[in-house]
């Protein structure tokens, strides 16, 4: 993998995101906008990180490179600005450039908590939803790793009949529309009593996360020579101890990258959570959707939208130093 991968693809990706974001903001689809903004943030941090690594030291950037950097920065962070302003606004009507009434001036006169007061008050259920989101995402990530590890190992190392079919099959959750899958699952889950349970949600969240995880881990296993495991075995380690002492430590960066994907995907799923949770289990995406489904960009919705982006960003910053860019790139392109 070349060290000098150009940041152009990232810039183009960010531009596409920016256009989508602007469109969704204009059409009032705040849930989508918030999710995209979150994804955009991830892309921005990645792009900047990659860029820094490409330079390999303090080096003067060419005008082109500086242009790209600024472009990516603006494209990604720009759309956050109206969201931040909206979260502090009390009244912000078109065509005003800035809100006519700010939240903190209206705060004293309002009868119910507004804006950030509302977001942080128990009525908003933000805390409960955040806890739900994080706990579900963590469990999904762990289960996903456990399920995907053996699958990825076999796909990477063995040749068997129907291998390409299985690989294709693993990608289908990314191709088939969620709503089609979700409806069928909902009917089944109602019958067997899994609808509205945490278990049910974890199971449906595994559907879109496993393909990512398997892809990332497959490429990781392809890069890990079998010799290491054989050497451990010859030195007296049984299969489990080989896994624990040799395989897992060596593929940890890949597991972290895949885990980050799984966590982000899981914490951003709306439709499946909405179907299977049946309103009993609220996560940040479903909460945000119920808040803004009316189509108004009120300060409460904007506040929650900003909160939604936080877990992913925190996680990314926590894991950034472990992750090799190659592993990430392979997760997308194979």
């Amino acid at each position: 993998m070349s060290r000098r991968r150009h940041p152009l693809p990232w810039a183009i990706g960010s531009l596409a995101l920016f256009v989508l974001l602007a469109a969704s903001l204009l059409t009032g689809r705040l849930a989508l906008a918030a999710a995209l903004a979150g994804l955009g943030g991830v892309v921005a941090i990645l792009a900047v990180t990659l860029f820094r690594r490409h330079q390999g030291g303090p080096q003067r950037l060419s005008p082109f490179q500086r242009f790209y950097l600024w472009f990516v920065g603006i494209a990604v962070l720009g759309p956050f600005i109206p969201l931040v302003i909206a979260s502090f606004a009390f009244r912000w009507n078109w065509p005003d450039l800035l809100p006519s009434v700010w939240w903190w001036t209206a705060r004293t006169t309002a009868r119910t908590p507004r804006g950030w007061d509302y977001v942080f008050s128990p009525i908003s259920r933000v805390l409960e939803s955040t806890a739900n989101t994080v706990i579900i995402a963590l469990i999904v990530t762990l289960v996903c790793i456990v399920v995907s590890l053996p699958a990825a190992r076999v796909i990477a190392r063995e040749n068997f009949r129907g291998k390409s079919l299985i690989e294709f099959f693993l990608l289908t959750p990314l191709i088939v529309p969620e709503i089609a899958v979700g409806l069928g699952i909902l009917i089944t889950f109602i019958q067997i009593g899994l609808a509205g349970s945490y278990l049910g949600i974890v199971i449906v969240h595994l559907i879109p996360t496993i393909p990512y995880m398997v892809r990332v881990l497959t490429s990781v296993f392809q890069g890990l020579s079998r010799d290491y495991e054989e050497q451990a075995q010859v030195l007296g380690a049984g299969p489990l101890r080989t896994l624990w002492h040799v395989t897992l430590p060596m593929i940890l960066p890949g597991i972290l990258a895949g885990g980050l994907f799984a966590f982000l995907v899981s914490s951003n799923i709306f439709l499946l959570t909405f179907f299977i949770g049946r309103g009993r289990i609220e996560t940040l995406p479903t909460l945000l959707f119920s808040e803004v489904s009316g189509g108004r960009l009120d300060p409460e919705g904007a506040g929650i939208a900003l909160i939604v982006t936080i877990p992913g960003i925190i996680l990314l910053i926590m894991t950034e130093r472990f992750i090799k860019e190659e592993v990430f790139a392979k997760g997308f392109g194979g």
């Binding site: 010799d227 054989e230 050497q231 075995q233 010859v234 030195l235 007296g236 380690a237 049984g238």
Partner: peptide
């Protein structure tokens, strides 16, 4: 199994 044979292998 390999781990029970008590052999040394230099790859």
């Amino acid at each position: 199994q390999p781990e029970k044979r008590n052999i040394g292998m230099v790859f």
